[in-house]
Design a protein around this nucleic acid. Sequence first.
DNA 1: CTGAAAGCGCTTACAG
DNA 2: CTGAAAGCGCTTACAG
Lengths: 349, 349
Amino acid sequence: MNQSPNLRSVIKRASIKDIARLANVSHSTVSRALQRSPLVNFKTAEKIRQIAAESGYRPSAVARSLVTSRTHTLGVVVTSIADPFVAEVVAGIEEEANEHDYSVFLADSNADPDREVKVVRSFEERRVDGIVVTASRVGALYAPLLSEMQIPIVLLNNQHPGGEFAHSIMIANVDASRSAIQYLLKLGHRRIAYIGDRFGYSSDSERFGGYRSTLDEAGLAFASELVVHGNGKAEGGVESMERLLDLPSLPTAVFCYNDMTAVGALRAIRNRGLRVPQDISIVGFDDLVLAQYTDPPLTTVRQPKHDMGRLAMQVLLKLLTGADTEQKIKVPGELIVRESAAPPKGVKA
Amino acid sequence: MNQSPNLRSVIKRASIKDIARLANVSHSTVSRALQRSPLVNFKTAEKIRQIAAESGYRPSAVARSLVTSRTHTLGVVVTSIADPFVAEVVAGIEEEANEHDYSVFLADSNADPDREVKVVRSFEERRVDGIVVTASRVGALYAPLLSEMQIPIVLLNNQHPGGEFAHSIMIANVDASRSAIQYLLKLGHRRIAYIGDRFGYSSDSERFGGYRSTLDEAGLAFASELVVHGNGKAEGGVESMERLLDLPSLPTAVFCYNDMTAVGALRAIRNRGLRVPQDISIVGFDDLVLAQYTDPPLTTVRQPKHDMGRLAMQVLLKLLTGADTEQKIKVPGELIVRESAAPPKGVKA
DNA sequence: CTGAAAGCGCTTACAG
DNA sequence: CTGAAAGCGCTTACAG
């Protein structure tokens, strides 16, 4: 009963031919019966299916793929699956894929361009039906590779969503960023800092753009010392916030590129003996689950990560069924007000 | 240049035959040249490879798999990829797999037994070379399915690692739990609570076992009101901690099933206006990255998540190359002392 | 309704 | 060193 795996691997799996022999029909008929084709007599079909079930038969997706030239498979390439934003997006992709009987290959590039190229190449060899690239920082570097590929690709929050790639889904960075800054202005803040992400090519500049234009429109002079850059992680948030805290005149509020950066900023502020939001207000971006559990709970811009993942898969599915409209979808962010932002000192709520 | 995907999909990919025609050799020779077989003349091999490169040829892994009956693929099934513990484990698996040119299928069961069964079945049809199941809660339910499978499986922190499954890698729950409780005892705590996970079949009972036996050995009477159960998430930690805080006599320290539970406990304590660790000490389990950024930073038991993932893949690799030793690996946890635990009131450090 | 035949894109003995 | 042949496990016209 408990044979060793290598012993077992010697035993050949049952194929359609074996079932055919047992059922006394041709393997064509078995194939049809298993596909529930109406072309085969009901009783024989039943019998065949029963025999298949009893013998633990499992059709070979690889053989099927070879003839149909569809693998019902997609490749997902991420910069880091350990990044909570990415993990939630992948959960959404996977869920949608699963519902449509697609399997997903996951590849973590670790933000290494070479590895990303290698991985995309391996997806080509696996003959995936489509690819989704999530939050890649290096997209531009392998653009030529992608553009010559014969596989539909959809980019999700990619740093280089432009030109040659027809299909992308992106958070509406500028508007989302503006809503965060408008909220801060409404609370009475006038000295608002921005902690960006030095690796976020387009998303950082868009979020920064929203920050700057909103400040401009409010008639506030741009103060370059209030703009610093982290790395999108908590440690980068700590460092960046420390630089801000060394300023002769502190900001009363800080808008962060993402929640992890905000978590770091929170820590740096605490380390200096200051309090959020009484001394400094903080606003994040993403709305990770942990944003509800920071101290204080984080006011942030929500990205519908799970839905964005599903959407990416839906776009892919549409492309796969032949639709060929160019798809560049912008998803709105939503400001989630919690407790990390409040009016600055001396201003009533 | 920018043809539509469906137009493109009509254009057949180059096959080994196309290359053969261009190179004026047989497809057998092309196959050999591409595999860098020493059997083929060096100059012809060079020429063939060049032609292949120029024509953007990509070998079909599916065709190759059909003949070699190896897919160089593995399936990873997880309860939830959005769980930070799981995500880090998967990162480790993926990294090790990548280094050995394996591709990984990821399936998220959402802790749904039916889905888990469906997914494992699809992995069988895809002819994955191996499967790793991570932190499954429902393993027992599909034990029969697994045991009749012809594919090697390794279980990682599975709730039912026993009997029929030869290969598993597990954190040393009992010892890790004991080290946490011993630390708390050394700090002077005598009234120590435990917030478990009602879904953690074996890991919860093992961690509880470590808790209880260490208390016993210290001569402390077991107080059942000090043991409550969450769901492994922050919300469950909040609820459970609230129940503890309603006790007529509060615990001075709480050992939590995992870090997310601890994060919830931290929040519940803060909501009651109490402080950690001055009023109550908290110890977690996992050492997620966020454990460094809670307020206060969390004292916790580290699981080497990334390494455990790599290890799982290594075991699989070993099984695939024929080794057939039963592998049940126990990985030690490590107590990471930060700031969420301190001597109870009235006891000097 | 059923079967024989061809073919998907490779690998690999077998013969030269 | 090279090619013709067989075969991996399926699907699907084509003929009956």
